[in-house]
Amino acid sequence: MLFQNRRLASLAAVTLVASLGLTACGSDDEGGSSSGNGGGGDATTVTFIPKNLGNPYFDTSNAGGEKAVEEFGGEYEEVGPAEGSPDGQVTYINTATQQGRDALVISANDPDALCDAIGEARDADVKVVTFDADTNPDCRDLFINQADSAGIAKVQVEMIAEQIGDQGEIAFLSAAANATNQNEWIKLMEEEISANHPDIEVVDTVYGDDDDQTSFDRTAALLQSHPNLKGIISPTTVGIAAAARYLSTSDAKGKVALTGLGTPNQMREYVEDGTVTEFALWNPEDLGYLAAYAAKALVDGDIEGEGDSFTAGDLGDFTVDEGNTVLLGEPFRFNADNIGDFDF
């Protein structure tokens, strides 16, 4: 996204290695004490539940959440399923509710499957913030949107169009088939292509389930099934890195363009070796950071809904928009000219 100056400054200063070794910073036992669901003079307890653990993207966003919680003197924990399934998330939502946590910050694996568990949490006065991937809006208190969906879709289409001369066959390599954000972006990308890029044809959409090996295999299968393929858009950080890894050692390197959403540290080697020309993302650390401050504002009663404003630490002031959403910003393009300026 086109980060504001303050975000560009913070990005350049961040040193976050997106590794699979980052583990949860709390346990169910540690989360057993609550602050009474009201903030007040007690530490605000915040539980982050990403789509899955061991995902470099969520390692980064959760680190931002932990930083924010430490800044406002709260108690942070990260729990979640090993694989990106809604059933796994429901278990952790229920546990956090039973423990009396003040707020949950969730990246939803399904728009509807979590709603019953979230409803029980809200009935128990637990504030629920979604980020990255939303639930049905009726289920949660607030959604922290990493970027406007239309903007995310448009920038990815623009990049692939530039890279393939605005014509030819392309395919999508997505995450899970029921991932809310992925499906919304793909729908909008198809609409953008249909309206403004008549010579680009979408020939397939495949799902790597946000698993490295599955995404790698799906990339190989795409090239076998579509020998005239000119480009791949992968709007998932796991998928684009796996696809780049496959392309980098295949005969398709330099012939099949790849773009989508990725982190600089994941994609650096593939930009430097010419496998990938350009990709985009927002700052996931800022996303988690903002989500945590929004959760704190809800718990404290500083915000309730549309039109209310709050301050999110170093990121500054934000306003709750229509649908009880808060927008982080616009996508930013990473390429050989600027990727060296970022480290996350």
Rank of each mutant, 00 (worst) to 15 (best):
E330T: 08
I303L: 07
A244T: 14
T23F: 13
I164P: 01
G305M: 04
T214L: 13
D112I: 01
T275E: 00
S27A: 11
D166G: 12
S85E: 12
G119Q: 09
T236F: 08
I233L: 10
G32F: 10
A177M: 11
I303M: 05
Y207L: 03
E120R: 15
D300M: 01
T45W: 04
F318M: 13
V326T: 06
G40A: 15
S10Q: 13
A195G: 04
D166T: 13
L222T: 03
G254P: 15
G40H: 06
L229E: 05
R218K: 15
V69G: 02
A220N: 07
V79C: 12
A82D: 15
V129Y: 04
G64L: 02
G119H: 06
D211L: 15
G74A: 03
G274M: 04
P81Q: 10
S19T: 14
L53V: 12
E304F: 03
E71T: 01
A179E: 06
S248N: 08
T277I: 12
Q182A: 05
T44L: 11
V276G: 04
S27R: 09
A257C: 07
F143Q: 08
P235C: 07
T95R: 11
P227G: 00
K187L: 04
A297F: 10
G151A: 11
G340K: 00
R268V: 01
T47E: 07
E120C: 01
I170S: 13
A336K: 10
I49S: 07
A280W: 00
G254M: 13
E169L: 09
D116H: 08
L247A: 05
L290R: 09
G31S: 09
N37S: 14
Q167W: 09
L287A: 10
A244Q: 06
F72P: 09
T60M: 01
S85Q: 12
A242G: 05
G36I: 00
A9Y: 03
I240E: 01
E66Y: 02
Y207F: 15
E78V: 11
P331R: 06
V203F: 03
G301L: 14
T263A: 05
W185V: 14
F172A: 06
D308R: 12
S234M: 04
V299M: 13
P81R: 02
C139Q: 00
Q167K: 15
A103E: 05
S234T: 08
V128C: 08
I240T: 01
S234D: 00
S107R: 03
G39E: 12
G307T: 02
L11E: 08
G305C: 12
G168T: 02
E77D: 01
G39I: 12
E71A: 11
I232Y: 05
V17H: 08
G316W: 12
T263Q: 14
I233C: 11
Q99W: 03
D317H: 13
A291H: 06
F334A: 05
L142F: 14
E322T: 11
S149G: 09
F279R: 00
R7K: 02
N145G: 03
V256Q: 04
N228F: 04
I193Y: 01
S174T: 10
T236W: 11
G239V: 05
P81W: 13
A113V: 07
A244C: 15
I200H: 02
Q266A: 08
L223A: 10
L328T: 11
T60I: 14
L11V: 03
M267A: 07
L290E: 08
T236P: 02
S309I: 03
C115H: 07
